[in-house]
Design a protein around this nucleic acid. Sequence first.
DNA 1: TTTTACACTTTGTCTAGGACAAACTATTGA
DNA 2: TCAATAGTTTGTCCTAGACAAAGTGTAAAA
Lengths: 308, 308
Amino acid sequence: MAISISISAAERDTGLSKDALRVWERRYGFPAPMRDSLGERAYSLEQVEKLRVLKRLLDQGHRPGKIIHYSVQELQQLAQESVPAIKMAAESGAENAELQGFVDLCKAHQAETLRHNLAQSLSRMGLERFIVELMAPLNQLVGEAWANGTLQIFEEHLYTESVQAVLRTAISMLQRPHAAESIRPRILLTTLPQEQHGLGLLMAEAIFVLEGANCISLGVQTPIMEIVNAANAQRADIVALSFSQAMNPRQVLQGLEDLRKKLPVTTEIWAGGHSPVLARRPPQSVYVLPNLADIHTRLSEWHARDQK
Amino acid sequence: MAISISISAAERDTGLSKDALRVWERRYGFPAPMRDSLGERAYSLEQVEKLRVLKRLLDQGHRPGKIIHYSVQELQQLAQESVPAIKMAAESGAENAELQGFVDLCKAHQAETLRHNLAQSLSRMGLERFIVELMAPLNQLVGEAWANGTLQIFEEHLYTESVQAVLRTAISMLQRPHAAESIRPRILLTTLPQEQHGLGLLMAEAIFVLEGANCISLGVQTPIMEIVNAANAQRADIVALSFSQAMNPRQVLQGLEDLRKKLPVTTEIWAGGHSPVLARRPPQSVYVLPNLADIHTRLSEWHARDQK
DNA sequence: TTTTACACTTTGTCTAGGACAAACTATTGA
DNA sequence: TCAATAGTTTGTCCTAGACAAAGTGTAAAA
């Protein structure tokens, strides 16, 4: 009577492909799901939980063969050790306490209060500092807490919704009622089809709008050909893309390369976010922005280039 | 030198599983992709385009074996014929002209103007009429135009982003600064993990908030166990779920059934949206709301039940 | 004529194990 | 210490068979 789920549900809930799940079972003996009356795999919730933690560690650069036989506890510890950003944050006491306060609100399911406090911090700090100094590290902390199992998935959803509400309100208040066509740079924001995390994109949009750029966001998951069509239709100067850790490195590089080939040379590509490949093997012909604060400098450079 | 894409890219861009793509090729001879130097399938853009139209028709209840050998033109015509809602709209001249105006703005890529005009209509009509009389049919029209190929994908993204911005602003202005815990019903809004369309959810949220309900949205794609956890943590009276046409009917019913089993009996499940199964084989023990206007009546009924 | 029951057909997803390139690691030689 | 080479690991693709669930059609009963 224990709850178990099919392979396609496991694929959905863990982010690991069916093929990967089957080949791991063959090679490493984990996961070794039960079989239902039809001989089909039935994964237990414990297995799914462990798979989720494994996925997170793979995204951080670990290799399955080395870590697959660790217990969930060992894996969670490994996850904690391997994120220096959090340890850093943990040391700068006061600031960290504030961040932790927001995480605690998530855990207490106080969506209203969370939203209210975020909005308050926003007014106090101003949008730019709010994003760079609060949202960015907070996102990290939340992602980390989620990987540890400290934060449940629905609590993370609650967080994402609240942040989104606050950010979107801020952006819509900043946007010009009737933006002149001529204002430049014209920036097209979106993510590749595999990437469904939209928070990074929203933060980038806010910073761009603050800097006076002309932003058009397509939301997440736009097919490459459509990004090209949109960039041409909008005569975009820059296509800005956001990547999360969870994205397949191969697809990141392949996608950027494809896009570069199909976009006019006059359109720049700016890539931001926490995909490890961007730092490790930054692709030529694409501008990589390791963090949001770089947007300011890069925009100045763009204006300088544009003058010429 | 013609552009072609891998099977996993085709899966992404069409919404058809790899397995389905392979088995169609085996059974019907379509799609019959080229093979690259490694013997792997390479789908042409034309094939992907046809597959997309096919997917849309399957979602409307057509069967692959009957329609797979039609040309793209024939399929598009079929798509147009089989949506009575649009034909109806096409007949009520004046209103239709207004809707068409919005679609035209999408086609002209005037995101700013689109957003502005939507906001204007919103102020003029009030939120409830705006959603029920404008957004709902407009969504239909846009979905239809997309299936026809009249509207490009990125134009549809532009539409979604604009609507979302307008709706979210409206909702955040309505929400109580500090909602009393005691206000009821407490409604948890989200979609099942397979469902990534969030517009319907947002429209429902707006109506609920207007009606004075206590809304907590988890955004899209929440795993079933997490919906249960969230509903318990929030002591939700109602779990409201939104479904689009594109969702697999089997998973809709299975998901609703699972959820019903795991939620406390005191928590009601309300299902809305355009999934054909909801109309054809409405599941017991779940309240089906065929359209947004029903929310009002159903809420009155809820309050009556609650009195007792 | 409409409804119910049963058989037949269609369709999507699962199964298995083999193959291979790309990414990563270790070892060698300069 | 670094660069090139050889070996290992890993994910995704391949084929082809199986089966239940959903849909369709036909015949008997109401």
